[in-house]
C-alpha cells in the first residue's frame, strides 16, 4: 500500500456522479426487500432472499456493475486523462501502485454492495431464522468483489475500452454463455461467488443450489485474484508512459 496513492484514488472514485448512480442502484435491493417484507409475496423467505434478492439482483447485477465502475476507473481513468504519467514517473514500484489502486477500488465496491446485502438481507429475513444466508452472501460478496475488481483493473491497463469489454464479459459470458454451456461455469466469477455463498449459508439444496461446491469456488477465486493481479502488475510494468491514448 502507498497512502498518498490510495487517498488520491479514493477521492477520484467518490467525487463523481457515478457515486450517486451507484447509491441509487444499491437502494434497489433494499427497496425490493422492504416490498417483500410488507407486501403479499407468496414465496418462502429463505428461498426468495437467496435465489431472487441475493443471486439475481445483488450477485448477478449490482456486484459486477459496482466492481466494473470502480475497478476500471481506479487506474483506467488516470490512463484516460493522461495523468497516469505523473503517477508512474514517481519512484513507487509498479506492483505497489496496482495494490493501492486495487485495495481502494475493492473497499469502495464492498462498501456499496455489502451495505445493500446486509440491509436488504436483514429486512427480508428478520425473524425468519436464516441469519446464515446474510452472512454467507456478505462474505461471498466481499470475496467476489476482490476477484471482479482485480480482473477489471488488469483489463483497464490492457485496453482503453476496458469498461465495454467488462460489460461484455459480465452480461454475455456470465449472463448468456454460462447458462447455455454448463462447462463454462468454472470460468465465471458469478458462479464462484454463488458457490461460496451457498457453502457458508448451508441451505438445503431444495432451497438454493449453486453450480459449484464451496471449496472449489474458494480455490478458483484465489486463482483468479492471483493470476489477474499478476497480469495487471506485469502489464503496468511494461506500460509505456507518454503514449497518447
Amino acid at each position: 500500500m502507498n497512502w498518498p496513492v490510495a487517498q488520491l484514488t479514493l477521492r477520484l472514485l467518490l467525487n463523481q456522479k457515478r457515486t450517486v448512480l451507484l447509491a441509487v442502484l444499491a437502494l434497489v435491493p433494499v427497496l425490493l426487500a422492504a416490498v417483500f417484507r410488507w407486501g403479499s409475496f407468496e414465496e418462502h423467505p429463505a428461498d426468495w432472499a437467496s435465489n431472487r434478492l441475493m443471486a439475481q439482483i445483488i450477485v448477478a447485477a449490482l456486484l459486477p456493475l459496482a466492481a466494473l465502475i470502480f475497478g476500471t476507473a481506479a487506474l483506467g481513468s488516470e490512463i484516460d486523462d493522461g495523468t497516469a504519467v505523473y503517477l508512474l514517473a514517481k519512484p513507487i514500484p509498479r506492483w505497489r501502485v496496482v495494490v493501492s489502486k486495487l485495495v481502494v477500488a475493492w473497499l469502495v465496491t464492498v462498501a456499496f454492495v455489502l451495505m445493500a446485502t446486509v440491509v436488504a438481507g436483514v429486512l427480508a429475513l428478520a425473524g425468519e431464522g436464516h441469519a446464515l444466508v446474510v452472512v454467507g452472501f456478505a462474505v461471498a460478496v466481499i470475496a467476489g468483489a476482490l476477484a471482479y475488481c482485480t480482473v477489471f483493473l488488469a483489463l483497464s491497463v490492457a485496453t482503453s475500452r476496458a469498461f465495454l469489454a467488462g460489460l461484455v464479459y459480465v452480461f454475455i459470458w456470465e449472463g448468456l454463455v454460462t447458462g447455455l454451456f454448463e462447462g463454462t461455469r468454472v470460468l465465471s466469477i458469478r458462479e464462484y461467488t454463488l458457490g461460496l455463498a451457498g457453502w457458508i449459508a448451508s441451505l438445503s439444496p431444495k432451497t438454493f443450489e449453486p453450480e459449484l461446491a464451496g471449496g472449489q469456488s474458494l480455490v478458483l477465486l484465489a486463482i483468479v485474484c492471483l493470476v489477474a493481479g499478476w497480469v495487471g502488475v506485469r502489464l503496468l510494468q511494461r506500460f509505456e508512459t507518454g503514449e497518447s491514448s
Binding site: L21, L65, L68, T72, G76, F163
Partner: peptide
C-alpha cells in the same frame, strides 16, 4: 464519460 454512460444504460 462514455464508460459511465454505457454503465448507466445497461444498468
Amino acid at each position: 464519460r462514455r464508460a459511465f454512460a454505457a454503465g448507466g444504460i445497461i444498468a
